[in-house]
Design a protein around this nucleic acid. Structure first.
Lengths: 243, 243
DNA sequence: CAGTGGTCTAGACCACATC
DNA sequence: ATGTGGTCTAGACCACTGG
């Protein structure tokens, strides 16, 4: 029975929140099946229909994937063939789907500047791990990424460990450090290439680049990654769907 | 009762499709209320719960807005205070919400080139109406838009008629021509400013601009607008939410 | 007050996957 | 055959809006 006001919150959303807490706590790991609807209904003492609405809300947020006949699975970055491009918006102009190769340039440690600290909800000076990497399409350099992570969440992240891993960056974070990237906010600008970036991206200094700044969130909207990509948009573009 | 296979389609989705057809045909106009769930249930001979799922699907696609206690309303671009920024992604860097002023430069007629014709599913040479306009934030020119429309759908569109209208462009299209913009696909690049655009946007020639190319769709995913915006991103950016 | 959409339940049945 | 999620129904009740 739902809590009768004030500030009414339906029962199914209360259960959504409980399930989200369990996901955050790691009660079921990414890729694993959650308990069936009937079992969850017993656990929370509600009808199967109410559990269904609760789980549907999780599925709508991509926290969970439902498979008819099989069960409900915790979403993962590891095997997502369908939504492989959910966090990768750069496409070829000719429309062909190409998944870029990632080449790691370096991994270093820094102290957070004031602005990055604010975006990651850290204190200025808190330790960061900074990765720099290239994304190459058909062997050509297209994106230069700088990725800042709170060192506290990514203990033991080294260059060789990244290079030993085969799969996407977010799959790496998820399996190796238990940090799940759920959503992100991006801000785009057009800026002139500085000398160093120009050299790496093989363009003239001052040439227009697409700058993509991203803050990535995990459960509870906690920010866990700051990223800036510089993209040479000669033969590629940033694709966005407005619903 | 749902059609029993093959290629199974649930009853509520069949009804969603019927409602969508009615919306397309203009059975209820934007801003108007649709019939109540109970009435729709009678009309289609299904339960209220099934109608509810059908309408929920429309609401998820932003075709319709549900208001508890009042009814279900056909979505409109005219009064959307909440989702005013659904099709306008340019924001101020300082985070303040500002709705830009629109200044119309000219309205002209052209014949469609091969590429625009393909994007708008027209034949090359079909007549187009082309609007050019500026978006100004706090009096400063920020975006230079070029908007191409199939002349067949926008008969009688003139400069003075646009200028006489108060409201957004899509509100204008909706109320004056019955063309409803529902979703869009955008491609972004960073390009150097050409001489003419540079002058209008008050930047140096060659300065990086954010180029935003948009194809906008109406019911049935029919393309009805092609648009290219050039954005000076000194104090503004393109904001995107990755779900 | 009556009418709307929103929640919750219980039960029947369907589609799909696996054994 | 069994278990999963997905659909559909019918009915009761709740929250909100407006006259």
């Amino acid at each position: 029975m739902p809590t009768s006001s004030p500030s009414f919150r339906p029962l199914y959303l209360q259960i959504t929140r409980l399930l989200e807490k369990s996901l955050d706590a790691g009660e079921w790991r990414p890729g694993e099946a959650m308990p069936s609807e009937i079992e969850l209904a017993r656990r929370y003492g509600v009808s199967q229909g109410t559990v269904r609405k609760a789980v549907a809300a999780l599925a709508a947020d991509n926290l969970v994937v439902r498979r008819q006949g099989k069960g409900t699975y915790v979403a993962t970055h590891t095997e997502e063939r369908t939504s492989m491009f959910r966090f990768l918006r750069i496409r070829r102009d000719d429309g062909r789907d190409e998944y870029p190769a990632s080449r790691l340039l370096d991994v270093r440690r820094f102290k957070a500047t004031a602005d990055v600290a604010r975006l990651l909800e850290l204190k200025p000076g808190d330790p960061l791990v900074i990765l720099r990497r290239m994304l190459e399409y058909s062997g050509d350099p297209v994106v230069l990424d700088e990725i800042a992570l709170p060192a506290a969440l990514f203990k033991g992240l080294t260059k060789s460990r990244v290079e030993a891993y085969h799969g996407s960056m977010y799959s790496f974070f998820e399996t190796q450090f238990g940090v799940r990237m759920l959503k992100a906010q991006e801000k785009l600008k057009a800026i002139p290439a500085d000398a160093a970036s120009a050299r790496i991206l093989n363009v003239a200094p001052g040439h227009p680049l697409l700058a993509v700044e991203r803050v990535t969130l995990t459960y509870g909207d906690r920010p866990v990654e700051w990223r800036r990509g510089l993209c040479a948009t000669h033969h590629h573009h940033y694709l966005n769907q407005l619903g």
